[in-house]
């Protein structure tokens, strides 16, 4: 009898949600999480430990609406005292390969010479901040354990990731109950339509690192790339609106590689998505208002006064517009 009662409660709650779909998510329905012992925080920490400490091989696909599935091979290995190694390989077409040795990430692409940059993780389809369980993610997103279901043949814990101010796309994350591995990650728009999906197909932890890692000749990897020097002058504009938890991580003045156009540039990130803001003299740029979707990214450019402000990033068009409109001359 005791267990039956919550079900009645669920039904009335469900009826309420069916009517008012715009109502704020999660907090009212937290009773469902009572059966799950681990918090989202603990589960993400478990994921972080798994992908940084263990020898494993995984295969997953990345899916986007109306596009081909993109399969990846992902391996991680620890060999004695030497720095850990990670490999991410795009399996279709001419491919693409990332190899990380300690803090150096080498990238091999078919259409460009290989290069190496500094970084403690590979910048692949799975957001690195999620795998690293970065604290700053909690400044921008709420992580809610919503129960369990079966993914890739395994019982899995499900976590919802929602931006605190609801200005960004949301995520659903499924983690393997046994190992803590990421099994599925959905990126959703405000209507709940899936924009991108990452689905794990195969995952195995092994005692020894994969033999592949012993074939990597660390001395033959491309040498560290010098980053192009930047002009460190201060911009005379500021972005007065940013979604909650989004921070400026870079600011410079450069010339675009393709056109040579001089741009004032800032990069913002909340850990899951990155947003670029460009400001150019209006007469030397688009000189019109343009907005469209490019894959998951929104491209939005507006003429404002003497400037052309362009915002690019994986955010809803409304948010991109709010950011662009908030660009002001610094006092």
């Amino acid at each position: 009898m005791l267990r039956f009662f919550p079900v009645v409660l669920f039904l009335s709650a469900a009826a309420f949600f069916a009517v008012a779909q715009t109502s704020p998510p999660s907090s009212e329905i937290s009773p469902t999480t009572s059966s799950t012992s681990q918090t989202a925080e603990e589960l993400l920490e478990q994921l972080h430990n798994l992908v940084t400490e263990n020898n494993f091989e995984a295969r997953f696909v990345v899916l986007q609406a109306g596009q081909d599935a993109v399969p990846y091979l992902w391996r991680h290995g620890r060999m004695g005292d030497s720095p850990d190694m990670e490999q991410l390989n795009l399996q279709n077409g001419p491919g693409k390969e990332f190899i990380r040795v300690g803090e150096h990430v080498s990238v091999f692409e078919p259409d460009a010479p290989p290069y190496t940059v500094v970084g403690n993780s590979i910048n692949g389809p799975i957001p690195w901040a999620l795998l690293q369980n970065q604290d700053f993610l909690h400044d921008a997103y709420e992580f809610i354990v919503v129960g369990r279901s079966r993914i890739s043949g395994q019982p899995a814990k499900q976590i919802r990731i929602v931006s605190l101010d609801n200005t960004r796309y949301s995520y659903q994350l499924w983690l393997d109950e046994k190992t803590g591995m990421l099994l599925k990650l959905n990126m959703l728009d405000h209507k709940g339509v899936i924009l991108e999906q990452i689905q794990m197909l195969l995952f195995a932890i092994s005692e020894e690192p994969h033999p592949y890692f012993s074939t990597v000749n660390k001395d033959r990897l491309p040498r560290l790339t010098a980053m192009p020097p930047t002009m460190p002058d201060k911009h005379n504009w500021l972005v007065s609106y940013l979604p909650e938890g989004m921070k400026e991580i870079k600011q410079d003045t450069r010339r675009l590689a393709a056109t040579g156009q001089r741009v004032e540039y800032r990069l913002f990130s909340d850990g899951l998505v990155d947003v670029s803001v460009y400001v150019e003299p209006r007469s030397e740029s688009l000189n019109t208002d343009v907005a469209f979707r490019h894959g998951l990214s929104t491209f939005l450019s507006r003429s404002m006064g003497n400037s052309q402000v362009t915002v690019i990033g994986e955010i809803p068009p409304e948010t991109a517009n709010a950011i662009a409109s908030s660009v002001k001359t610094a006092p």
């Binding site: 940059v117 910048n123 690195w128 450069r254 675009l256 990155d274 740029s285």
Partner: peptide
């Protein structure tokens, strides 16, 4: 111009995690 901006954005995101090394 649009293509140049998109390419640049993608490039910046790719290199985001890396620390600028003095040449």
């Amino acid at each position: 111009q649009i293509q140049a901006l998109i390419t640049d954005h993608e490039q910046q995101v790719k290199l985001k995690a890396s620390v600028p090394e003095l040449s």
